[in-house]
Design a protein around this nucleic acid. Sequence first.
DNA 1: CTACCACACTGGTCTAGACCAGTTGCGGGG
DNA 2: CCCCGCAACTGGTCTAGACCAGTGTGGTAG
Lengths: 258, 258
Amino acid sequence: MTAKGRGGAAPRLPRRLAGGRPKGEQLREILEGLASSLPPGSALPSERELADRYGVARMTVRGEIDRLTGEGLTYRQHGRGTFVAAPRVAQAVALTSFTEDMRSRGMEPSSQVLDQELVEASSILAARLEIGPSAPTMRLDRVRTADGIAMAFERAYLPAARFAGIESTDFSRASLFELLAERWGVVLRDADQRVVATAIEGEQAALLEVAEGEPGLRFQTLTRDAHGAPVYYAISLYRGDRYEIDLRQVRGDGRARA
Amino acid sequence: MTAKGRGGAAPRLPRRLAGGRPKGEQLREILEGLASSLPPGSALPSERELADRYGVARMTVRGEIDRLTGEGLTYRQHGRGTFVAAPRVAQAVALTSFTEDMRSRGMEPSSQVLDQELVEASSILAARLEIGPSAPTMRLDRVRTADGIAMAFERAYLPAARFAGIESTDFSRASLFELLAERWGVVLRDADQRVVATAIEGEQAALLEVAEGEPGLRFQTLTRDAHGAPVYYAISLYRGDRYEIDLRQVRGDGRARA
DNA sequence: CTACCACACTGGTCTAGACCAGTTGCGGGG
DNA sequence: CCCCGCAACTGGTCTAGACCAGTGTGGTAG
């Protein structure tokens, strides 16, 4: 038969659907399992074959494959079949903290505070943070690690007047995001970031445990709260061999919901 | 009738579907128009009413509303109805071509074609482009320049079967984006991008006129059309000293996909 | 007046077919 | 030997019902 090998590649599927739960729901789980266990490009059984095997109407099968295809797990080719899609990168343009970012990549984040002190804002920094010139700011230097491996060096500046007592807060354990939310009720909303490729040199090469001149990503980030007021400005240097940016770009109208 | 006012709020809808084109497709356009012209929270006509009005089966209506709901234009409430969803916040990172990107930075883009030929897709590439294994693809190597200065090296792969005659098209002048739109009517919608920092080595260092080992940004981009079908896959290498990424991140609901 | 229940709506699931439209392989004719 | 056409697959669209499951309302019994 021409469809040989399709079913054969499937890892031991249930043969019948249980009663009680909607058939489509059960079918969907089976198909999700199939799609996630097969390599990209593999063919799924045909709609008619699935309908026949599980004793449901073809429209029921189609409905579930429609869902999978809409989610990007599979794709269809008219006249050829339905295939497992290559995994898409996550929606990574969302504003996340280093802590959230690393956890979403399956690693355990931590930090080592190198330096933490009050300094006067330079004129450039004051302008960015929208505070008065020479206003007190807290400068926080940290090495960010994931699973114990140095991932990035980060220097953050926060307006000290707005966050009373911040200079004596212990940042070695808590996430900056979480502390701002818990102690000062700050809801971070958006950030402007500038990213350039750069060579890692000198002291930072030592901190990140890489050879001089190795490539890295330098982020300049200005994060704002729900009112649009700047909360902190940070410069981060990520190791090029251990960090990547995943972007999902949308053209034009880019509709979706709030 | 209880459903009064639903239809009344609708801005003069066509009463019949034309022949020739699929009914679902026409229905979809009507519903999209409805959803975009009504304020968020408005109720759409019920599925049975729409089916009745346009003389189609309710399953046909449901299929299209499924699509709209999947795209986030509408949402459903069991027992109550289907409603127009609130528009999502604008997507910050817009999908642009190199041409548009450079012009927006105030530079004049150009390209130099290094190589252009038909090759068989590797299994990995075929899976990414969602085409059959060993299907013909056009490989296009270019150096992208801005104001006459080498900015990036780019290798793009396009499915040749879909774009008849593409292998003999001159890409030294025209933008790939524009050509795809004009000659093949392709509307690019979104792209997944992976960005890593890397050292520029060997031949590519020569092409970009930088010293060996200088830092650069490597992009892997999969661009899709309005139907979600992959259009091309590209690997680009940008000079680290001449290119930067500007991001605007928004803290969202973290809408996820697999 | 209130509490409850039946009914008329809504969407949710599912069936068992129909026919159309691409793709592919195989066999026969030139 | 090559090419063409047919047959057997694939997904794409659509029908005309069925019954289930929530929601909301209005009338009726207490």
